[in-house]
Amino acid sequence: MYYEVFIDVLFVINFVMDYFLLRLACRLLGHSATWLRSLAGAAIGAAGICLLAVFPMGRILNTILIHVVVNTIMVRFGCNLKKWREIAQGVLVLYGAGFLLGGMLLMLQRATGSRGVRAFFLLGTVSYMLLAAGIRVCSRAKRKRARLLRVWLYANGKCHEGRGLYDTGNQLWDPVSNKPVSIGDSAILETLFSPQVRDGLLKFGEGENPVDAGLLVSLHPHFLPFSSVGCPHGTALAVTLDYLCVEGLEVHKVITRPVIAFPRENSSFSGDYQVILHPNLIDS
């Protein structure tokens, strides 16, 4: 019993699938290798398979050369990895991507009943596109979770616990205190302040004189002009709180006397967060 193998078909099949695997591995590793590099790596991998098919060196040696040498070189160039630790991780990720791609391809083959080289390429491409889309969605969700941090705001002995969004687009700065300004949802005022203080801030925001202005002295209320999408010329009421604590996966900050601005329109807030954090508070 023997198999008739066409070397050109073997090369093309391995070249295409290796390219798909390298692109998936790059996405999973978070590396930005160009598609040209992935093509070069796929060509190296396909050429190595063809050489070992034409000049076999025994089952054990062939297995070692394919799974260690060829895949290592392919990942090194195809994913633009330089350190040995990264390369080893890349090889493992490549096998993981192969497991996912092979499983998806097998599932589609069974579902459609398609066979042959053309069906293999078509279903392989569909499998790659589905996996790439899934990885992209998961990456976006992961980045969004990383930008959401737990926050605690303290004022007058009261605390508001919620979530803050790390937003590099927030460049609001307080010229009075020369501090970065975070933006808060007006609902925070109900948690942190008594009805008398809230009424005083409301009257101050409307340009009226508060009944008991002494309650607002420690907050240093003042107005800050700002511009945002949909509001090119807005004004926010800024107050100074006692503390702002921020906690995340790699972040643990305690900011003394933070400045928080409360715009009249809360269209920038969603149910996921109540504070838009200034990036300087996290990066400094």
Rank of each mutant, 00 (worst) to 15 (best):
A47Y: 07
V70Y: 13
L52E: 01
D18G: 07
I44N: 08
A97W: 09
Y243F: 14
L281E: 04
G200L: 07
A97C: 15
Y2H: 15
S194P: 06
G200I: 02
E250I: 03
S228F: 08
K179P: 04
L123E: 03
L21H: 05
L224M: 09
G41S: 07
R23M: 12
M17N: 14
G214N: 12
C159A: 12
S227K: 06
A97H: 08
G98H: 08
A261R: 01
V259N: 01
S284W: 10
G41L: 06
G96H: 08
P258T: 00
V70F: 14
R143S: 11
I49L: 06
V181G: 04
P263A: 04
N178M: 12
T191I: 09
F99D: 00
L39W: 00
D8K: 14
V91T: 11
G116T: 06
T240P: 09
F77Q: 09
Y3H: 13
G102F: 03
F77E: 07
I60D: 05
P221M: 07
R118W: 09
P210F: 00
A111V: 08
S284R: 14
L201H: 05
Y154H: 15
T125G: 15
L28K: 04
I60K: 06
W84R: 09
L249I: 03
L130E: 00
I260C: 04
H220G: 06
S127D: 04
L100C: 11
G41K: 05
P263K: 01
G45S: 06
R115G: 11
P56H: 02
G134A: 14
V126T: 13
K83H: 13
G48C: 08
S38G: 15
S268D: 04
S127F: 02
G48E: 02
V246S: 12
S139H: 09
C245V: 09
G30M: 11
H67I: 01
N62T: 04
S186E: 10
H160E: 09
L165E: 12
S284I: 00
H252I: 06
L244P: 06
R143H: 14
L148S: 11
A236M: 14
F15E: 03
L94R: 01
L24T: 12
E265I: 03
L244Y: 02
R163A: 15
E206F: 13
F204H: 06
L36M: 09
G248T: 00
D283G: 00
K179I: 02
